[in-house]
Amino acid sequence: MADNEFGYTIWGMDWVRLAEPISLTKPEPLLPRARSIARNGGVETEIENTMVRATIHRGSEASVTYLEFAPLPSADIRTIAGLVPAGALSLADELHGAILGAGVTLAPTLASVDCSCRARTERCVHMLATCYTLARQVDENPWLALDLRGYRTGGSAEDPVEVPVSRWTPLDTLDPAAYFDLPAN
């Protein structure tokens, strides 16, 4: 696995799977370009709790991509805290295996994705480049994998409820009178 440019640790490979899910049935044509953008330092990330804001510059175009990750449930955080040695400066691959063996899923789950580009799809080249950049950052600092899932900030107070968030609002669902606050006749 040392030949991999992104996800060369077991911690980072979980994050590469965001861009390269095993469930894909056909080749993704945007992946080579996304890897190139990430490889050449075209992604600048700002991380705050479970949210990532990435600025991607390609030529004369710039895009802003937001990724938000589902926090770990409180029970999973307690389980991880029992396995991580006190004062641990780095997280070894063996610890990743122990956490998985305890029944905790470490693979990140996207709660929300948004990009300012014209692609009109969640899996745009900017989102994919951000995933590769995060994988590289997690390879360098495995604590980031836990922090982006809310490990040090407490995670979720209850088990997360999956609510699909629509990226677009269909026009036929809007009531013009209520939307524009028009007085009733």
Rank of each mutant, 00 (worst) to 15 (best):
L110F: 00
I47Q: 08
I80S: 07
T25D: 08
L171M: 11
W143A: 14
I99D: 01
Y132N: 10
Y151Q: 09
P21R: 03
I22M: 08
A92P: 07
G82R: 08
N40E: 15
A178D: 15
N49L: 09
T79V: 12
P164Y: 05
W11S: 13
G7T: 02
R35T: 12
T55N: 08
V161E: 12
V16S: 04
D14F: 05
M1L: 10
N4E: 12
E46D: 13
P32C: 05
S60N: 12
S63D: 10
P32A: 06
I77Y: 07
A135F: 00
W143Q: 12
S90K: 08
E28G: 09
A34D: 10
R35C: 11
T55G: 03
A102R: 03
R33F: 01
S60L: 08
T109Y: 03
L134H: 06
C131I: 10
M13C: 11
Y151F: 15
T105Q: 09
W168H: 12
E44H: 06
S90T: 15
R149K: 13
A177W: 03
A111H: 03
G101K: 02
G154C: 03
P71N: 03
A86S: 14
R78L: 13
T121H: 00
V113S: 02
A34H: 03
E20P: 06
S63K: 03
D181C: 06
V125M: 00
S36T: 13
T173G: 01
T65W: 00
A102K: 06
L67F: 02
A62C: 04
R149T: 12
E94V: 08
N185E: 14
R149W: 03
G154R: 01
R17K: 11
G97H: 07
R152W: 01
T45H: 00
P32I: 04
G41I: 09
L100Q: 14
P164E: 01
I37D: 04
P21Y: 06
G101F: 05
